[in-house]
Amino acid sequence: MSLLPQPSTWSGPLPEASPPSDMAVYQLPTGTYETRAAFAFKGGSFRDKRRFAATAVLVRHPNGDLLIDAGFGSDLETHIRSLPRMQRAPHQLTSTVSEQLESSGYDQDRLAGVLVTHAHWDHVSGIGDLQAPIWINEGELQYARNARGAQVFRDVSAGHEIHEYGFDGPSYLGFPSSFDVHGDGSVVVALAGGHTNGSVVVFVTEPTGKRYAFIGDLTWQLDGIRRRVERPLLMRALADTDPKRVRESLLRVVAVAGAVQVVPAHDVTAYDGIPLLPV
């Protein structure tokens, strides 16, 4: 099995961040679906079943809260039926983001929007249950409007306000440009691209100094980071618009993995340590 080259470990200072003391990060797991490790990363075993997470992340901030992705929604069965048969997998819906927010007594007027890492169905299904704006960059919006793999996004985004943002900030942990959501370094979005046209990594810094990198689908499992391996060739061809860009971004994340908690969107174990929303 060929490994990706070992990048130089990030040795520079970490970017400045001044998150407010009342900022907080929560995971909102909405369900899982099954796949084989052999389809998830090079060298994975066909006998190794993996539960792929469909988890949203709520970042509470006094300037306005954001969801990173939206997980499974109440119309999940319809969304899955819209997929090609080969993409359908055994799945389990637990509780939607909207249901979890409601049961916790959360005031959804605080929600500034859903910042999507990319527009694939398993990241946006839950948007249909929410009234919040959708935060998306120009490249991903173009993909979402035209790509066959973004039909669910087109369905659930109907009637939603689109909040388009750009990358006018400096390089960030090896990524060429960035967008500082609140201007305090607490939530910084970097363009990764390659999985879809405008797929992103969202870096979050807590008041404690703890840092996260929510990397979407640069890799589906932490094995991609720990083993320095890509998706299998067939899955790269099916899933990625530009595998070379995915590889470059993946290596940038590998380089900083010692300084941040890397969270591939579909690795259940990657969310360890992030609390659930209190009820």
Rank of each mutant, 00 (worst) to 15 (best):
S11E: 05
H120Q: 10
A150C: 02
L58N: 09
P278V: 10
D242F: 04
V201C: 12
G126T: 08
V200L: 06
T32I: 13
F167P: 02
G183N: 06
R148T: 11
P232N: 13
Y165M: 03
I80M: 13
Y172C: 00
P15K: 08
D107H: 00
G185P: 06
T196A: 10
D184W: 09
V181A: 05
W10F: 12
T96K: 10
R148H: 09
H123P: 01
L28D: 02
A38L: 14
T241R: 14
T96E: 12
G183V: 05
V187Y: 00
V253F: 03
D22Y: 06
M235W: 11
G194S: 10
V256Q: 04
A112M: 10
P15T: 08
P15L: 08
D65N: 07
E206T: 10
T96S: 15
A265S: 14
F46H: 13
G216Y: 09
A237Y: 14
Q108A: 13
H79N: 11
A132Q: 06
P278G: 12
D267L: 05
V124W: 02
S125G: 06
S249F: 01
S8P: 00
F72N: 07
G174R: 01
G174F: 00
I134T: 01
N63T: 00
N63G: 12
Q131W: 09
A192T: 07
G128E: 01
L14E: 06
D155Y: 11
L115C: 07
A147K: 07
L233S: 14
G209L: 06
V229Q: 09
G174N: 01
G198N: 05
A150M: 01
V268F: 06
E230Q: 15
V253N: 03
S171C: 01
L3E: 12
D107Q: 00
A89L: 15
P29D: 06
R110H: 08
T9L: 07
E230G: 03
A270S: 14
T117P: 02
L238D: 07
L115K: 03
V25M: 12
P275V: 12
I68M: 05
L67K: 00
A119V: 13
L218Y: 04
V116I: 15
V260W: 07
Q108M: 13
K42W: 05
M1P: 09
G185H: 11
G198P: 03
L130C: 05
L3W: 00
A24K: 10
L234F: 15
P275C: 12
V268T: 15
S249D: 01
D129Y: 08
W121M: 09
E34V: 13
E161R: 12
D267A: 11
A150W: 00
G64M: 11
V246H: 04
I127N: 01
E140H: 08
V152A: 06
P275T: 11
H195E: 12
H79S: 05
T241N: 12
M23T: 07
L276C: 10
L3S: 10
P232K: 13
R252S: 05
R36H: 14
D22W: 05
R81C: 07
S95P: 03
I127S: 02
P5H: 03
W121E: 09
L238G: 09
R148F: 12
Y271L: 04
G71S: 07
R50T: 14
L67G: 00
T269Y: 11
H163C: 11
L222R: 14
W135I: 02
R154L: 03
V189K: 02
G43F: 13
